[in-house]
Every structure is written in C-alpha cells, then in structure tokens.
Amino acid sequence: MNARVLPLYATIAIFLVAYLICYLQFPAMLSTRVIANLLTDNAYLGIVAVGMTVVIISGGIDLSVGSVIAFSGVFIAVLLRDTGLHPLIVFALLLSVTTAFGAAMGGLIHGLAMPPFIVTLAGMFLARGAAYMLTIDSVPITHPFYDMLQDAYYRMPGGGRLRLIGVLMLLTVGAGMILAHRTRFGTAVFALGGGSQTARLMGADVGRTTVLIYAFSGFMAGLSGIVFSIYTGSGYPLATVGTELIAIATVVIGGTILTGGSGYVFGTLIGVLTMGLIQTYIVFDGTLSSWWTKIVIGLLLLLFILLQKGLLILGQRQRRSTA
C-alpha cells in the first residue's frame, strides 16, 4: 500500500476514536446540533486551511492569512458603514483585493527567489497594518442582507441548524479536493512540492504556478474573512491573531507533510473537525480550562510529526529493499 496515505488514515482513525470517547462520556455529542455547530464554528478555519493545504503541498507556507482575515472583516465593516454598496459588491471587491495580494506575494517569491516564509511574514504585517489604517475599533456590521445570511440555515433531523457558512465550508473543501487532486494545476502543485528544480526541467511553469498558489490562498483567506464577519457580525483589526498557525497545525494533523509534495485536502477537513471536537469537549466538560485545547493540539501535532518521520524512514527502507 502507498505509505503516503497512512497519515490520512491515521487522522480519520484518531478523529473517530476521539468522537467515540466523547460520545461515551457525553452521549449528547452525537446529536446533529453538535455536528452542525462544529461546522459553523470552524467554517472560517476550514476555508482558510484549504488554501493553506495547497500552499504547503507546494512546499511553501503562507503566514499572512490570519491578518488577511482580520483585514477582510474590517474592510467589509468599514465599507458597509461608510458607503451604500451592497454587501455582494463589497465581497467581490474584497476578494479581488486579497487575491491580488496573494498573487503579488507569489510573484515576489518566484521573481526574487525569496523564501515564502519571509515574503508572507512581511505580508502578515502589511495586512494587519492595513486593517489598523481602516479603523482601530471593532466595527459592527448591520445590514439586512447580513441578517439574512446569518439566519439562513437548514434544519437537520434532530434539530441541528446547518448554517450557510458551514455549508460554504464543505463546498470549499470539495472544490479544494477537485483542484488539488483532479486538475493539471493540482499536479503542478504536487510537482513543485516534490522539487521545483525538477519540476522546471519537466516543463512545469513554476512562476505561473507559484503566483496562482498564493493567489488561491489569498482568495481563500478573503473568503474566510467574509465567513468570519458573518459569524461574528463585526470587523475588528485585532481579530484572528495566530490563525495562520492554527491553520498550519490543522493541515499537518490532516496528514499533509510540511516539507511539501504530499497531502490531502480532505485530511485538512478532518484536522479542522478534530480541533473543533476538542473545543466542544471542553465546553461540555465545563470544568476544564480552555488552555487544554492548546495542549491537546500541541500533543496531536507532535504525534503527527513523529508519525510522518516514522513513515519517511519506513518509506526509505522499502525503497532500498526494492532497489
């Protein structure tokens, strides 16, 4: 069997086991209410993590996304407050801004042969700064269209409310799966992660692919910002600090290898749900401090890194034995 799928199976197994444990302790956790909330609460994280998955598979990293989400919220809130534009137009404007921002970072990474870490770190400060330039306060969003978006839901059997943003997240994951695993662009992303020098000699357009990868991540961060603004009903420049790191963690827990070249968008969804599950458990328990979330996430990350290292060694052994 292909050793690279193992992390994905491990992620799914861990998620199922964790859910089982939760269920045994709190049978209510299997209700559609909890599941619906899991999707709603983590919608913005899931969306941005899809973009991050593609970036990491290509061997890169995007540290700017947390700031871009905050910028998006502020951008929307301020524009809705100060202009008469319809939210849909604001959304379109915002997505063009964040996509162009990502594309510019990709262009710099390729054009100047700079490490993605540095370029997107600069992008992180820039986007956060831009958010502060728009406002330093939390700006509430009040618009009838927003009320409609917030109230739109589908009632699942059992009473759970599957909200629009949860559905949007699932659709995004689906689209991300197709993009990464079923298109030429996706293959080029994997090729870059396998070795950009080799990819170039095989005829990949490395520059174009790099620009598209970061543009995609920027688009996803913008979309995530929209979802976050619907979720919180406001824009705040200090929001989602460190979200980029949580997104990276979910991607790794989802079975994508941090050095690039291998990964699954579906795994990222499971990674996001696993995080959400831990949080829900802590809420159910009521006595645990929320810091436990971080501790468990830390442990999970460690586990997955060890697992990947182990698989790597195993893979090399196998290769040697077939050679």
Binding site: R4, I178, R182, T183, R184, G186, T187, A188, F190, A191, G193, G194, G195, Q197, T198, A199, L201, M202, G203, A204, G261, S262
Partner: peptide, 28 residues
C-alpha cells in the same frame, strides 16, 4: 537531463503525462 529522474512523489502516469494530462471539463 543527466541529473533528474522525474518526480518521485507523483505517480508513474502523472510523470509520463505531466503537463498534458487528458482532461474533461477541466478535470483530469
């Protein structure tokens, strides 16, 4: 080329057809 052996993390088929994979409605 002398020094490359294609991409080990892609499948044999992906390596062979890289850049020219048959697609249908944009999907490979």
């Amino acid at each position: 080329y002398q020094e490359v052996n294609l991409l080990p993390n892609l499948t044999v088929a992906e390596n062979l057809t890289f850049g020219r994979q048959p697609t249908r409605w944009g999907m490979v």
